[in-house]
Amino acid sequence: MQGEHIEPVDLRATGAVARRQAFSRLSRYLLLAMSLLGVATLVVLGYITIDDGAGRIDLDFLTNYPSRFADQAGLRSSALGTIWILGTTIVLAIPVAVGTAIWIEEFAPKNALLTFVKLNIANLAGVPSIIYGILGLAMFVRFADLGPSILAGALTLTLMIIPMTVIASQEAIKQVPPSLREGSLAVGATQWQTVWSHVLPSALPGIITGVILSISRAAGETAALIMIGAFSFIAFDHSLNPAEALQDDFTTIPIQIYNWTIRPQEAFRQNAAAAIILLMIAVFTLNLTAAVIRERFRRTY
C-alpha cells in the first residue's frame, strides 16, 4: 500500500532476550564442565593404574598360577575361573531372564499378580550384591551342599543378574511397535509365532545390550563371590568336562585383585593394577562386541 509507514525492525538481541540468551550460553558451558569432571576422574584413575601395572603385564603374568612371590604370581586360575563362572551364568541366566521378560510383556494377563511380580523384579534389581552372596551361601553352598563351587558361584550370580536382565529385556520388547504384532496376528499367526518371528528378532539388539551389561556387572562382581567362600588358593586348571569343573573350587580376577590389594607389599599392588588393566580390557571388549552385534542386527532389520 502506498504511503503507509513501516516501522524499522531490529532483530538483534536486546533487553530480556539478550539476558536469557546469555544464561543459555552459560548453562551450556556449565553442563560441559560437569561431564568433563566425570571423564577427568576416569582418565586420572586410568593413568595411575596403567602407570602402576602396565610394566607387570607379560605372558607369564597370564599363564602363572598365584604365588606367594609377587613376581611369580599370575592370573591363570582366576582368568579361567572367570570364564567358567561367566559362561555358566550366561547359560543359566539368559533363558530364564528373556523368558520371563517375554512372559511379562507378551503373555501375562494384565492383573494384580503381574503388577506384584513386576514390582518385585524392580526391587530385586536394586538389592546389593552382598545380599545375593548371603542368599547363595545359605541356599547353594550350605542347603544344596554345593560347597564354594563354580556352580554355586554361577547360580548366585545368575540370581543377581536376572532382575536387571529381565528389566532390560522388557524394555527392549516394549520398544517393538505394536503395529508389528498386529500385522503378524492379522495374517493369522499365533501369539507364539508372532513373538518368535517378529517380536524377538526386533527386540534382540536391545536384549543383547541388556545381557552384555549384566554380564559386565557379573564379571566385576567380588563381594557376592567372596561371601559364598570363593577365596581359595587355586593352583590347577579346571577340567574341560563341565560335570567335573562345576564342582571345583574357584577364584576369579576381581577376587584375585582384591586378594592382592590387601597385601602390604608394593609388588602385589602392581600385580593388582596389571590385573585391573586386563579386566578392564576384557569388559571393554565385551561391550564392544555387544555394540558390533547390535549394529549388525540393526542393518539386517
Binding site: S179, L180, E182, G188, P201, Y301
Partner: peptide
C-alpha cells in the same frame, strides 16, 4: 481367533511391513 483372522485379513492405518 487365529482361525478367524486367517479368513478375515486386515490392513492398518500406518503401513506396517515386517522389517524383513
Amino acid at each position: 481367533p487365529v482361525e478367524v483372522r486367517r479368513r478375515i485379513g486386515m490392513v492398518f492405518q500406518k503401513p506396517n511391513p515386517f522389517p524383513k
